[in-house]
Computed example of a mutant assay.
Amino acid sequence: MSDKQDKATAYWKENLRYLLILLSIWFAVSYGAGILFKTALDSIKLGGFPLGFWFAQQGSIYAFVILIFVYVRLMNKLDKKYGYDE
């Protein structure tokens, strides 16, 4: 039973590590690019709009959707690694 518990604990530790990394990336894109670095990014235009505005309005959403797909892929690999896949 202890081996099963150790396996489950290792699985959740890796899962939490993935979550922290991916949410940190999302935070950096949404808060960093959309708010902190907005002024610097506004000198660049994307589709006629300042890049800082674009990140604040749409870039963080796109980044979040991409990170969802990355998370699904990582979790599928993690499930196979620990034998939780079906």
Rank of each mutant, 00 (worst) to 15 (best):
E14W: 09
Y11F: 11
D3G: 12
G47P: 05
R17G: 11
I25F: 02
N76E: 15
W26R: 07
W12F: 15
Y84D: 02
G48Q: 11
V29G: 08
K4M: 10
D3F: 03
L16I: 14
A33M: 14
F27V: 07
K4E: 10
L41K: 04
G83W: 08
K45C: 11
L22R: 03
A8H: 07
L78M: 01
A10H: 05
K80W: 03
I25Q: 12
W12N: 09
F69K: 10
L19K: 13
Q58R: 12
Q5S: 07
K13L: 12
K38T: 12
Y71V: 03
I25M: 00
A10I: 13
L74T: 06
A63Y: 11
G83R: 06
L20S: 10
V70K: 03
L20D: 06
E86L: 15
S2V: 10
K77S: 06
P50G: 15
F64M: 09
V65A: 06
G52W: 02
L41Q: 08
K7H: 05
D42C: 01
L74D: 06
I66A: 03
F37E: 08
G48T: 02
L23K: 02
D6G: 01
F69D: 00
K7S: 13
Y31Q: 04
K13A: 10
E14Q: 04
L74V: 12
K77M: 06
Y11S: 02
L78S: 09
I44L: 13
L22Y: 09
F27I: 01
L41R: 06
F37I: 03
V72I: 11
F53R: 09
L46P: 11
F27K: 07
E14P: 10
A56I: 13
W54Y: 06
G32N: 04
I25C: 00
W12D: 06
L20A: 11
F37M: 02
V29M: 01
Y18K: 09
D85M: 06
Y82N: 03
N76G: 09
W26H: 07
K45N: 15
T9Q: 15
I44G: 11
S43Q: 12
D79N: 15
A63V: 05
R17M: 14
D79A: 15
G59C: 05
F69V: 01
L78H: 09
Y11C: 07
Y84G: 07
F37W: 10
F69W: 01
